[in-house]
Computed example of a mutant assay.
Amino acid sequence: MTITTQRVHWDLNYDIHLGATWGRFMAGLTEQKILANKCPDCARVFVPPQAYCESCFVRTDEWLELPSEGVVEAFTVAWQSFRGGPTPPYAIAGIRLDGASTLLMHYVHGLDLSDPNAVRAQLPVGTRVGAVWAEERTGQILDIAHFAKI
């Protein structure tokens, strides 16, 4: 039996229904607010918000606004490009915003990415970062243009 592969190209445009939870989160971004929700049973704070707690399986109806600052818990640098993405290299970090139990993944700018061996020293775990807001906001995650070291 011969195993073969076939190259396929899909160019898709589609609309995504955000639902009430993500819709509220994205609407908050237009006003430079990072909204989170909280589990009434275990008190975990989710950002991005979730309709249900992943641990307790209860609705997370309590909303709060988080500060736009936090700490880097993990990061990676993308060295290769993909269609529709930013020009590499670029850094993406898991950021624990102050008061959050979960991580928000986002771009971090202001790093010298010219030397792959020196990147880790520029963004150690625990580095404080703050949101840099897009000038024009349209209810998308890139209303936070990126995060930068504080």
Rank of each mutant, 00 (worst) to 15 (best):
A51E: 15
I34G: 12
H17E: 14
T60I: 14
V132S: 10
P86D: 13
A91K: 02
F57L: 15
S68I: 08
C42M: 11
G99Q: 07
H109G: 03
E31R: 15
Q140V: 11
T21I: 08
I141N: 11
E69Y: 12
T127C: 04
W10C: 06
L97F: 13
S55K: 15
E135F: 04
D61N: 14
D61Q: 07
S55M: 15
V119N: 00
F147A: 00
F25Y: 15
A118Y: 01
E73N: 10
H17I: 06
T138F: 12
G94E: 11
I92G: 03
V108C: 05
G126Q: 05
V77Y: 04
H146L: 02
Y52P: 04
C42S: 12
I92P: 04
W10I: 09
I34R: 11
I150A: 07
W10A: 08
I150C: 03
P67A: 13
T4H: 10
V72Y: 07
I92Q: 12
Y90M: 00
V47E: 10
A93P: 07
Y14M: 01
G94C: 10
F46L: 14
P67V: 05
C56I: 14
L113G: 00
H9S: 10
R83V: 13
T5L: 07
P124C: 01
W133G: 05
D112E: 02
H106G: 09
N117E: 11
V45T: 14
V132F: 03
G19D: 10
I95R: 10
F46V: 14
Q140D: 12
L103N: 07
E62F: 04
S68V: 09
P116E: 02
T102A: 10
T76S: 13
N37Y: 12
G126R: 03
W10G: 04
L142I: 07
G99P: 06
E69A: 10
D143T: 02
P89I: 00
W79F: 11
R44Q: 15
E62N: 08
E31T: 14
T4I: 09
R7N: 10
E62R: 06
P48L: 12
S55A: 15
P124S: 01
V47H: 13
R120I: 03
T127N: 02
T138N: 08
A36N: 11
D15N: 07
F25R: 01
I144E: 06
F82Q: 03
E62W: 03
V72M: 04
G85I: 04
P88L: 02
A131K: 05
V72H: 05
N37R: 13
W79Q: 02
T127D: 04
H146K: 01
I16Y: 06
M1H: 11
L104G: 08
F82R: 02
N117Q: 06
H9Q: 12
A100L: 05
A93M: 09
V77L: 01
T127Q: 03
R120Y: 03
A51N: 14
T30N: 00
F57R: 07
V129M: 02
L123K: 03
Y107N: 10
F147E: 02
V72T: 04
K149T: 13
Y52G: 07
S68Y: 12
H146S: 07
P124A: 01
P89D: 01
N13F: 05
G99E: 08
A51C: 09
R96Q: 13
A121K: 05
D98Q: 10
V77Q: 01
A100F: 08
E136T: 13
V125N: 03
Y107G: 03
